[in-house]
């Protein structure tokens, strides 16, 4: 039954192999489908999106948006609250939870590198988030279309894509938290604290600081885009008419300073938030700490 050592022909590549990344990703997707949390998030997002889409009454005019636009504008507000929490908690619990239960040790006892395990986990979770985000936007889109929208469909799709980018940016931050924390519960706790910081305190903090220190509008704008949630919101709002006038002086400053390239700048900021945290998380995880 057993090959004798003389017969053992070891032909394992030490380089990252796509098939191993795919095997881990597939398992993460299957885990997400089995998880009640996944369905809870997906369900909550879809239901709230449906409610927002239904309440965007046909024929009403909000800042000149059509039916799709009105729904999308509402969804931006929903997405900037729910999606960060979804991405952060999912990412934070993944590695920390597996480390706590011994599943990570079991996985890494196989002939798989940490790089393959990490990117497999990330791709699997990013795919699960794709399904959640586009499921929610899909439900809302169908309702908006039924109400006679259509002119702003492109903006709607763009916001859905930006929402997914926000989700995977948060997933990256969550994974980074996961590399610092020993248990699933502390990872979740930390991720909720970060979520509060990004979604509420960041916004209020910038506003408060701006008032207290009479911050110049340029600094106010830069402070805003340092927060990935704010960067997403600004990028999403430019989808409607390419203007950030609704944001007041900072928005006006952004339009005046960056003009046509504002759109590209904001998407680039979101992209940096997608790439940077997950890259640092990968570096930390793959450098070989104890599991």
């Amino acid at each position: 039954m057993t090959a004798s050592p003389a017969e053992v022909q070891v032909t394992v590549s030490e380089r990252p192999e796509l098939r191993l990344i795919a095997a881990v990703a597939k398992k993460e997707i299957a885990d997400a489908v089995r998880s009640k949390w996944f369905w809870l998030w997906a369900g909550a997002f879809a239901v709230l999106a449906a409610i927002l889409a239904s309440s965007a009454l046909p024929g009403s005019q909000v800042a000149g948006f059509g039916s799709f636009g009105r729904t999308a504008a509402s969804l931006v507000a929903l997405a900037q609250i729910i999606i960060p929490l979804m991405g952060l908690t999912l990412g934070a619990y993944s590695l920390a939870g597996q480390r706590e239960t011994g599943a990570l040790r079991f996985l890494l006892s196989h002939p798989i590198s940490r790089t393959e395990a990490f990117w497999g986990t990330y791709i699997g979770l990013a795919t699960a988030l794709f399904a959640t985000v586009f499921g929610g936007f899909g439900v809302a889109g169908v309702i908006a279309a039924a109400q006679g929208g259509g002119a702003d469909a492109a903006s709607f799709v763009r916001i859905a894509i930006l929402s997914w980018l926000l989700a995977i940016a948060m997933l990256g931050i969550g994974l980074l938290i996961s590399t610092f924390t020993a248990s699933g519960s502390s990872a979740i706790g930390t991720s909720i604290f970060v979520w509060l910081g990004l979604v509420f305190l960041g916004d209020l903090g910038v506003m408060g600081t701006a008032v207290a220190t009479k911050m110049p509008v340029s600094a106010l704008f830069i402070s805003a885009v340092f927060n990935p949630v704010e960067a997403f919101r600004l990028a999403a709002l430019t989808a409607f008419d390419g203007s950030l006038d609704v944001l007041g002086p900072a928005g006006q400053y952004a339009v005046d300073s960056f003009g046509e390239s504002l759109d590209v700048l904001l998407i680039a900021v979101v992209a940096v938030w997608v790439v940077a945290p997950v890259s640092v998380a990968w570096w930390r995880f793959s450098k070989g700490g104890d599991v």
Partner: peptide, 30 residues
């Protein structure tokens, strides 16, 4: 392990090993 260094050739080394953990207390829903 059979001449392969466990640190630099981890996948090669682990491909020759089967590991039985103390307790299989994970993947409960699988």
């Amino acid at each position: 392990v059979n001449g392969a260094d466990a640190r630099s050739s981890g996948k090669t080394v682990r491909s020759q090993m089967g590991y039985v953990p103390q307790e299989l207390s994970f993947y409960d829903d699988m």
